[in-house]
């Protein structure tokens, strides 16, 4: 079975989800649950950090599409950070950089919310 897990930490008004391992159709529901929990707690400023993510398929990309509208309607955003070149290339192929702000590091993404 694919190895995937997430951890969530709060930094002031920003919540950071760190992804680790392989994000595919089997593991995507774990990340979906993270978004549902954060939305339930009215935490709409979300940074998703990819530096420990080894792999993503379109099922994983779909999770970002599923919640972004609700989060932006609530004056929040999902910002992405720390992608390896391989993972970025997949996002890029599908045109995601037009829809999401992508930062080199988690810190830069968090700062963007505080600005």
């Amino acid at each position: 079975m694919a190895d995937f897990n997430t951890s969530i930490k709060d930094q002031g008004a920003v919540s950071i989800i760190n992804l680790k391992g392989y994000l595919d159709a089997h593991t995507a529901p774990i990340l979906e649950n993270n978004f549902v929990d954060l939305i339930d707690k009215n935490r709409f400023n979300i940074v998703v950090d990819f530096k420990e993510l080894a792999y993503i398929s379109s099922a994983g990309l779909g999770v970002f599409m599923a919640y972004i509208e609700k989060i932006r309607e609530s004056k929040g955003d999902i910002k992405l950070s720390g992608m390896t070149e391989k993972v970025f290339n997949i996002f890029d192929l599908l045109g995601f950089p037009l829809l999401y702000e992508i930062f080199k590091s988690e810190d830069e993404a968090v700062k963007k919310f505080i600005e």
Partner: peptide, 13 residues
Amino acid sequence: YRQKRVGGLGMYL
């Protein structure tokens, strides 16, 4: 993005 649809991305990839 507007329709919250994600299907079809896999086939495009």
